[in-house]
């Protein structure tokens, strides 16, 4: 896999969660963590979240909007949407292959 998200190394996971969360509209840090918690069951710690945000901004995959009060919403860019799409489709092939082979050889619980 050579998409932009995989290139983020240890931040691929958090970055995928962040982009997935932003895919339906801009969110600020706290809304983002709550959203990720809701759809993935993962608590993104603040340090990790901002490390991922920094890298995504740097790569042009998201952009910071004008702060609302103290909170700054982030928005996914077209480049970010393309990268997320590519990454998730690659992931889907892995997921489907894995699940398919499991279904063939192992009994699902």
């Amino acid at each position: 896999m050579s998409d932009e998200l995989s290139a983020l190394g240890r931040y691929t996971g958090p970055a995928t969660l962040v982009l997935s969360s932003l895919a339906d509209g801009p969110k600020h840090g706290y809304a983002l963590t709550k959203d990720v918690e809701h759809f993935a069951g993962i608590h993104l710690a603040p340090g990790t979240l901002y490390a991922a945000l920094d890298r995504l901004v740097e790569g042009g995959l998201i952009e910071g909007l004008e702060a609302v009060g103290r909170r700054r919403p982030y928005k996914i860019t077209a480049l970010g949407a393309t990268a997320l799409m590519a990454h998730l489709q690659a992931q889907r092939r892995v997921t489907e292959t894995g699940l398919g082979r499991l279904a063939g050889a192992w009994e699902t619980p």
Binding site: H28, G29, Y30, T33, K34, H43, A45, P46, G47, L49, Y50, A67, G69, R70, R71, R72
Partner: peptide, 22 residues
């Protein structure tokens, strides 16, 4: 990042006061 990060931390601390890993 100062203000937005402080805001996030405050929300996070109020939301989950005990989170040793944070």
């Amino acid at each position: 990042h100062e203000e937005e990060f402080v805001a996030l931390l405050e929300d996070s601390i109020v939301d989950r006061p005990f989170w040793p890993g944070r």
